[in-house]
């Protein structure tokens, strides 16, 4: 079980969080033309990285904030965590 540092609450066990996928994906802006390819990339296409991965977690049984986590997908090492509006 991972030990994740919520930037709002501090160190917490993984079972308080739920995983939210790749944090680098940016939703295309509303009311703008989006090509099929770009839209497909946004909705479906994700890299299955081995190594450092920036990802989203929600502290669902805690402060309910979405946070950013940089984690090694092979070793589960967590390098840093950040608030939703911060860059990681």
């Amino acid at each position: 079980m991972l030990h994740i540092k919520c930037p709002h609450c501090g160190m917490r066990s993984q079972n308080e969080f739920s995983y939210g996928g790749d944090a680098t994906v940016k939703r295309p802006e509303l009311n703008k033309e989006v090509s099929d390819q770009d839209w497909n990339n946004f909705v479906y296409n994700r890299k299955s990285l081995r190594g450092k991965h920036k990802e989203l977690w929600q502290h669902i049984s805690g402060c309910r904030q979405w946070i950013k986590v940089e984690r090694d997908t092979a070793t589960h090492e967590i390098f840093k965590t950040a608030k939703a509006h911060e860059d990681i």
Partner: peptide, 13 residues
């Protein structure tokens, strides 16, 4: 609820 929080916190803060 999580869905709304996602958009409010991350997409349209």
């Amino acid at each position: 609820l999580s869905h709304l929080e996602y958009y409010l916190q991350l997409v349209w803060p």
